[in-house]
Amino acid sequence: MRRRDFLATCTAAAGAAALAVVRAGQCAQGATSEVAKYAAWRRFADTPFGRVAYVEQGTGPAALFLHGFPLNGFHWRGSLERLAPHRRCIAPDFMGLGYTEVPDQQDLSPQAQADMLVALLDRLQVSSVDLVANDSGGTIAQLFVARHPARVRTMLLTNCDVHENCPPPQMRNSINAAKAGTYDQKMQRHLDDPVYARSEKGIFGSAYMTPANVADAAIEYYFNPLVASPRRKAQLNRYLAELESNPLLAIEPALRRLKTPTRMLWGTADPLFPITWANWLDQALPGSRGVRRVEGGKLFWPEELPEVVADEARALWRV
């Protein structure tokens, strides 16, 4: 290679590397700004269960967004932004997760979480909602609508626990660690090593389609509160341990009577919740509006494709 060509190649490579660094910095800066904006929106509602953290955007009829484990309401930020022109969008953090504050011995079971939602909605003077849920939030959504069908106008379910697949068998080791009081150590490892968090063995690497796009600031916003104190570590473990007992089998008769318009949006690349369970809901729910396949979608795809959630929500809500 001629010296001039060699120098040109080196210059181009250096320029590309510098551009990559700049773009990475811009991405990280953008994520930090996004986290800061969401944190500034955070409010607290005093309930009999404790201080429930939530974010609220928009006006009009209410929509309630239920996140999965071990995330918090930040998961729905893109959907809230797109749907706030049509709904009063409320995204709470469940007890034992996120920034909600509850007493040491508060019941953290899915049934108690559903009861907490009732108290939260009463506190916010909300009589009925459109439900949107993901992962273990889907368990709580089904419990909520089975107990309070008159308070749910529509339900949009993404990959989540269904019937006998609650919890999925792949969660056994994690639940055992939680019962032993050690699952919080996994959260700490994610915080200490974001590269691990985005690897195939990490939560973001296994549950996101493009884990490289999950910024360090987002990982910190999700997991910092979970290990912030001995109390929070214990509550994290208890939340997960409480998922061992399946509460959905008992409400099957109520679900089979449910006429609430319901739509399933299901990622096809999620080993925890195969699309066969979306089809089970489609057959079981009298109010089903069918299943939309999200090709390549993993468990937490709604965070990555909020436009899909928003499009389907608007169609279900007919707005």
Rank of each mutant, 00 (worst) to 15 (best):
F204Q: 00
F204Y: 11
S206L: 02
S206N: 12
S206V: 00
A207H: 00
Y208M: 06
Y208C: 00
T210L: 15
T210C: 13
T210H: 14
P211T: 00
P211G: 03
A212R: 14
A212F: 12
A212S: 15
N213K: 15
N213M: 14
N213Y: 09
V214S: 02
V214A: 05
V214F: 03
V214M: 02
A215C: 13
A215I: 10
A215P: 11
A215R: 13
A215N: 11
D216I: 06
D216A: 08
A217F: 03
A217W: 04
A217S: 15
A217R: 06
A217Q: 05
A217D: 07
A218E: 08
A218G: 09
I219M: 09
I219H: 05
I219Y: 05
E220G: 13
E220I: 14
E220N: 13
Y221E: 13
Y221C: 09
Y221D: 12
Y222N: 10
F223I: 01
N224H: 12
N224W: 06
N224C: 10
P225T: 09
P225E: 09
P225K: 07
L226V: 08
L226Q: 10
V227P: 04
V227Y: 01
V227C: 05
A228I: 05
A228K: 09
S229W: 08
S229T: 13
P230D: 06
R231D: 12
R231I: 13
R232N: 13
R232F: 08
R232P: 07
R232C: 11
K233N: 06
K233C: 09
K233Y: 04
K233E: 07
L236I: 03
